[in-house]
Design a binder for these strands. Structure first.
Lengths: 153, 153
DNA sequence: GTGAATGCAAAACCTTTGCAACTGG
DNA sequence: CCAGTTGCAAAGGTTTTGCATTCAC
């Protein structure tokens, strides 16, 4: 998605919710699309500050919250760590490498997700599932030739 | 598990880690075993206070942390809500009813968990999985005759 | 023009920590 | 006895909020 398309997509989606497209929201969203590495709000703040020196951390939080509300971004939580933000809207799991702190997207076959939902007893209707692995991953260099996973740092 | 067995289990497990069995730890653990409804630290505090009026919230946090370290209890997090504590050590998922805030244990077939782990690319070794459903559940009254799920309020 | 969004600072919230007093093995 | 644990209060880190100013539509 080119920056232009991203911006159009953003303003259209915001407009659909009666919200305004602001420079801050654009820049925050663009930063998430550029480096898809699940940054925290603080990290987003650090990344957008050079482009928008007057932006405040509170605004970054507000923008991220807005993007989450509009379903343009997913909020990802591991334990009690700071929330992270992810523009991958596909159903997917996350892998948290406990030694590096890095988070990787893990593609899921829809069939597996279906199987999971079937584990729910009657009367339970799931609107969402969150699947988080935690563990260790080999260094990317060793791994790169035999995996197909997006490395979202 | 009778209270006596629970206490023996507790002191043995603590001893194995070089930790002491204290009245506070016993009461906190007992409260988790008694009402298996995923209470927060504040809720545990409220429940144990009558039995141990001098206990402090910080001690409840410390006891819970200790129990988690000893693998007698699991810590469960939903989004940024306060942590909840669960004495069910079996591999299981959680269902978070967004309208009532209640959390239900969901039994998982080991085969499904296996399938999930197979979604991981080579080089990723998961030491744990967290699976959280979020959605709506029918009132227990309507549901009780056709489900077998533990209702952990 | 006008309500929405920003920026700042302060508050809120959950959780951890420092430290003196206490206690379990 | 004495290291481990408690209770209290204070601090910590993340996120939200109040409010005056600015901005998008």
């Amino acid at each position: 998605m080119s920056p232009n398309h991203a911006n159009e997509n953003l303003s259209r989606t915001l407009a659909e919710s009666g919200l305004r497209s602001t420079r801050q929201r654009e820049v925050v969203y663009a930063s998430l699309l550029k480096e898809r590495d699940h940054p925290t709000a603080e990290e987003v703040f650090a990344r957008v500050k050079p482009h928008l020196p007057s932006i405040s951390l509170a605004t970054v939080y507000n923008c991220l919250e807005t993007l989450v509300q509009c379903s343009l971004v997913k909020q990802v939580n591991f334990d009690r760590e700071p929330s992270r933000y992810c523009p991958n809207l596909q159903e997917h799991a996350h892998f948290h490498d406990v030694s590096t702190g890095r988070i990787y997207d893990v593609e899921l076959e829809p069939a597996v997700v279906e199987k999971l939902k079937e584990a729910l007893p009657a009367g339970f209707e799931a609107s969402g599932i969150e699947i988080n692995f935690r563990g260790l991953s080999e260094p990317a260099a060793t791994r790169s030739f035999h995996t197909s996973t997006h490395e979202h740092a």
